[in-house]
Amino acid sequence: MGKILEPNIPAPDFNLHATPDQTLSLSELKGKPVILAFYPADWSPVCGDEMSLFNEILPEFRKYGAELLGISVDGVWCHTAFAEQRKLHFPLLSDFEPKGAIAKQYGAYREKEGCSERALFVIDKNGIIAWSYLSPVAENPGADGILNALEALPK
């Protein structure tokens, strides 16, 4: 298990598919805080899995002007189906080809399983990592850490 990137360094940029015909780069979101939520896979079989929970809390994140991005190694069609079924109102990025390349840059890739860790990053409006957290992979981290980190960002 690698060590995830820590605060006070620039967040590595990426350009990944958010829908089958659209890509999204971190640099496009400069000027806003970004919550980057790596998670192992779509379709975890519980109510209120991590992405569904964050979806419910989205209005709170938006109060801080923050954008939420989910990211996993699932393919873009898988993400589309997952987002549709769970009614997610934020982009899911597909770290699919080369697989896990962005997760690796953030130190959030599980080589053995071939998926991302459950890792959270709050990136400030200048693209600097303000907070990061690695959760045990089986444990949904909840959103309290993210909200505390957003609250601590300089206005």
């Binding site: 519980v46 109510c47 209120g48 899995d49 991590e50 569904s52 929970l53 419910e56 809390i57 709170e60 444990e139 949904n140 981290p141 909840g142 959103a143 309290d144 909200l147």
Partner: peptide, 13 residues
């Protein structure tokens, strides 16, 4: 209730 739960680390139901 909901936000108090979120701030206490409630992560699902």
């Amino acid at each position: 209730d909901f936000m108090g739960g979120v701030r206490s680390g409630v992560n699902g139901t």
